[in-house]
Design a protein around this nucleic acid. Structure first.
Length: 192
DNA sequence: CATGGGATTGACT
DNA sequence: GTCAATCCCATGC
């Protein structure tokens, strides 16, 4: 993607990333699930304002925000909106594409559907750790490529975000309808 | 400096 | 369905 792709309202970016391809080294997968986070709502890390932790979120759009969750997992986000606004899209699930054997080795499981069907799983499968926080998604080790033509027009459904206690009512989770590689099934309605 | 809380996962009842 | 693992970092004394 070009930087301008991320320099837009985070909800639009979250929806438009469905079908895109995340690549790190030889491993890659098609994005089938995302969530949007914005400084205006309490579930977003940037809600507390500018701190050492959140400085990445307030930086250049098209930057990777990688942080540790529950002391165990690394979670990957794409920073959005202009500098000074804290917003990002959490990449929650991928359909494995390339480097599948490497993913299986890193994950310690064989089932294709278990490799990247969760935000902590996909970072493990792609070998993404905290040292990649703040790296550039336009010209850095992690790349996000546009959707291939067969993903254009793919149906997207919106739903409530998963695993949060604040602002849980917002329908800011976006999923490829009928994908078999989601972290959880959906109940939401189709999005334009 | 001590404390508390997670944008999760996998193992177990 | 329940629950512990484990660490970064914000906050408060």
């Amino acid at each position: 993607m070009r930087r301008a792709f991320y320099d837009r309202p985070v909800l639009e970016v979250a929806r438009d990333l469905i079908g895109g391809v995340v690549r790190h080294g030889e491993t890659s997968g098609v994005i089938v699930e995302t969530e949007a986070y914005h400084e205006s709502e309490a579930a977003c890390h940037a809600y507390v304002g500018l701190t050492r932790r959140t400085s990445t979120l307030f930086g250049e759009p098209g930057t990777a925000y990688v942080y540790r969750s529950y002391g165990i997992h690394a979670l990957l986000n794409a920073v959005c909106e202009p500098p000074g606004i804290g917003a990002a899209v959490l990449i929650r699930a991928l359909e494995p594409a390339t480097g599948v054997e490497t993913m299986r080795r890193r994950r310690g499981v064989d089932d294709l559907r278990a490799l990247c069907s969760g935000p902590g799983k996909l970072t493990q499968a792609l070998g993404i750790e905290l040292d990649l926080n703040q790296t550039d998604l336009i010209d850095g080790p992690i790349a996000i490529e546009p959707a291939t033509t067969n993903w254009h027009g793919a149906r997207v459904v919106a739903d409530r975000r998963i695993g949060i206690t604040k602002a849980a009512e917002l329908p800011w989770r976006f999923c490829a309808a009928d994908s078999r590689y989601l972290s959880r099934s959906t109940t939401g309605a189709a999005v334009a």
